[in-house]
Amino acid sequence: MARTTSLIDPAPDIIADKGVTDQNDVPILVQDLTVAYHRKPVLWDIDFSIPEGKIIGIIGPNGAGKSTLLKAILDLIPKASGRILIYGKPYRQQRAKVGYVPQRESVDWDFPVNALDVVAMGQYGKIGWFKPVTRKHKTLAMESLERVGMADYANRQISQLSGGQQQRVFLARALVQDAQIYFMDEPFAGVDAATETAIVKLLQQFRSIGKTVVVIHHDLQTVKDYFDYLIMLNMRIVATGNTSEIFTPENLQKTYGGRLTLLDEAVQAIAREGDRRL
């Protein structure tokens, strides 16, 4: 597997410059990650690290493995190989530092809870086993709703909210987690312009207080405005680096243009082989 870009990923640099112990300062370090579904590889040899306090976009075509990469980092799916460190430690030890905003479509919005209940779920981890949600947690959840401009909707059943409002509820739930790194899976998908602006503002607020935000994004037009740093992905890393440097027609062509037919064929072959073995 040839690394197709001349812009090397900065992981080795950072480590080399500051010494190995400073891995603890790198929000996310991914080394040699491969992920497979039903023995069919979706991510190949992913190596990258991201800088702290930036808004980072992950872009790539459908099926490029963007969500898979997020889920692998969050330990939601098994890795075929490789390791991922969050501030120098495995995810399991760092959960409190990580907030997650799943895709809006991943849940049933007809569920009988209101907006405030959903936001309070962001604190369940802190509350711990068996203990109920108290007034203190509800107050915090309410503050979080206020920050995304949804305080008036706290008692609305979530099915009665618009798509953009639902997305904001999800954001508020991540907010209340009070994390260091946030992962968001397509927060801009299917939301109104007002919500999009609100989300961008929130991301910038995060950045201003030194938090790191990783966002899966689809709309190439807004990439330059929203993100400081980019991970361009198509089953393997095409390029990582500052948006101003790597968001070039050449890299876009590599990411989105012409499928890698040989790689595709290899994937199919492996999948077939896997089937036979099962």
């Binding site: 889920k71 799943p102 569920f111 779920m121 369940y124 068996f130």
Partner: peptide, 22 residues
């Protein structure tokens, strides 16, 4: 009763529950 909170989260958003370490 004692797992009310946990069951609710599981039913609503399994992925998020998992990311929180449940």
């Amino acid at each position: 009763t004692i797992l009310y909170k946990e069951f609710t989260l599981l039913c609503f958003d399994q992925e998020f529950a998992s990311s929180q370490g449940w």
